[in-house]
Nucleic acid binder design. Structure first.
Lengths: 217, 217, 217, 217
DNA sequence: TGATAACCGAGACGGTACGTCCTGTCTTGAG
DNA sequence: CTCAAGACAGGACGTACCGTCTCGGTTATCA
């Protein structure tokens, strides 16, 4: 509630500058990597004074976070528009739920395949990997990354697993927040740390292993 | 193998400086964090010329990597010595295998509980998290981190799971390298990204879920 | 004469703002020095928008110049009022002439002693020194300073010396504009450049040296 | 004596950088003026890191002061060399005394004419005016300017006037330090403040007025 | 008696320079 | 040759002001 700094007046903010800064930040991170991207460089590329960046963002990570969220929002909107063109009215912003066809394994495989696509799309990969790395190194950034990028997606899995529990497809006693990690975390770790390549086959296998366990039946 | 630079003469290297640099690097990373740790700072704290660092290491991450490996080796040696005092001669450096009591679930839970202890020990946590973050941001560092810190540990799980397959405790058709991720990666992600707290209960649960699957039997 | 910019309408100018800007400028210059006085600082102290300053003045030096002239006018008015209270009506603004008692040496010593007083009065010293310095550095400012602050005073000496020439107290062939510099410039230089302290004794000595020369008679 | 900062090691100082900085500072001040000359600009023009300037000098004025002193020394050396070529051995650095031909007026006029030449030489005029202005605005700089540039020259006049007093050409009771100001300060003020042009005629007149006084004989 | 045009406070904006910090290279003198 | 020490060219940091601009909000004539 309380203002800590001279509090800039958001209503007079330059929309043009904001968009130019987002674009410059994403371009530079993609071209040169996060470490070689500088506030000065973003300002220069965006044709903006440095102070305009420092006025509205607290750090390089903060700029990139918002730029990435903006990119994700716009992309989601486009995807939704295309889907709406095909399937009828659905003006909802944000993806609110995982598919539920009744076949849990198939639904999870579908979603994870889409995640693989996204993780391998260079427009998303470079900035989101940079944000993840910065979030690991800096706890404050980490909280933001988890709260705004990671946890919302994970909650969709929680909901889908709860539905599966109600349908009798998942043991009723287990914790969905832990269960989802069995197939999500392995993918995340392979992608983040390059421990091994990721593919549709791999995520399909993860779902099978997780649903039916490692021990023989 | 091949030397690219004027090749420093390793036989004349100052052992004292090397140890002082390791100590300074670990102290500074723990005190101030990786980002605020600088080569100049390490040199000053170690009472060493900057060139001595640049002569033997290629980057801040490289210094910290070796310092951390050295710390881990020394700690492992001490642990081994204590174990040897109790159980007889065992001069082997490095832990070569996971325990195999015949009870796979119990063995995995034991090892994961030890991992939790290590991940929460501040002497290890700060530098290894820094290395992980740097490894995500910088692919070259990432390869080193995976090859020297991560993969060796994972291979121990592969071996234990193969033994379990031979014993009939794990389905014979599944890939151990993927299987191990069901309980290792969730722990890794929670620790790396602070998505949720880690505990003995949590790792025990992971083992149960992974071995017996999410679907009802 | 001709206006180059959108020509502000002087009749609608805010008198309150003008006075607040003068006060703020003089205060800040006195407190912090000319270099650390900024347009933003003056605006903030005066509770005025920056544009109000840029609308009416062309530079920091310009603001200070007017503020100083205003201060000098007001002070002269007060002095004149006091004198008028004692000696009868004299509503004239500005001091029009040096005293002429018939004793040139005494008159000059009196005026120079008053000048010493003014040069050592902190309310005048700081801003006028700042203006002098800026006038030396910047030729445009210099012209203003000389025309508005310096030359008017010097002309009073010219007039008094001309009277002395007519009275036979000064050689008739010499140039009064040069002659006055013999006692005025030394005082100016000592004050401006702190080459040596200034005092009544010093200015008295200057008058004696200048009137009667260095060579023996 | 006591070191206040990490004290750079002067013996390892780069002579090349020092000379490049002097040259760049003088060039920029002459081309663009003191106010538009920046430390960054000097560093860039000299092909030098900014830190190299901040390591050895405390301010822009300090750089320019040393650069100007260096220029003056070198010029004096060249002049002395030329004089020595004509008149025999005279390896003395610095001009130690004013000429003394026995004719005080002639000697003073000669020296003041040389001063006029120097004050109008653009290589000297721009930087020395800048230093004078900065010295008026900033007391610390002012002390340096007076001690290193101004007072040494004035002391030469003191010596010449003392000799004249011994020779009976100047009244024995007067203070040479004040006396010299009668012809030096007017020239200084005209030059500094552009109150009027300076010329040989003008300085000749000053000497005459000062020696023989304003009052009729 | 509104309209309309200015000045006004406020402050965001594109820029420039500041003085500091650190990088990775190079140089010096001691061992 | 290594080493401690640290000067060097370079470049990014985050801050402070510059001078311009735009935004509502008062005035203060004119229609």
């Amino acid at each position: 509630m309380a203002a800590t700094k001279p509090t800039p007046d958001a209503s007079r903010r330059s929309e043009k500058s904001r968009r130019a800064i987002y674009a410059a930040a994403l371009e530079l991170v993609t071209e040169a990597g996060y470490a070689r991207t500088t506030i000065e460089g973003i300002a220069a590329r965006a044709g903006v004074g440095k102070q305009t960046i420092y006025r509205w963002w607290s750090s390089k990570a903060d700029v990139l976070m918002e730029a990435y969220l903006d990119l994700a929002d716009q992309t989601a909107e486009q995807t939704a528009d295309q889907a709406a063109d095909q399937a009828g009215a659905d003006p909802a912003p944000g993806n609110y739920a995982l598919p539920d066809t009744g076949d849990l394994a198939a639904d999870l495989k579908l979603v994870l395949r889409a995640t693989v696509d996204e993780l391998l799309d260079p427009r998303f990969e470079v900035p989101s990997r940079a944000l993840a790395a910065e979030g690991i190194a800096d706890a404050a950034v980490g909280r933001e990354v988890v709260a705004k990028l990671l946890e919302p997606s994970l909650q969709l899995y929680v909901q889908r697993l709860r539905a599966a529990q109600r349908a009798g497809d998942v043991r009723p006693d287990l914790d969905p927040r832990i269960a989802l990690e069995l197939f999500v975390s392995p993918l995340a770790q392979r992608w983040l740390q390059h421990t091994a390549p990721i593919s549709y086959d791999y995520t399909d296998t993860l779902v099978d292993y997780a649903l039916y366990g490692l021990a023989p039946r």
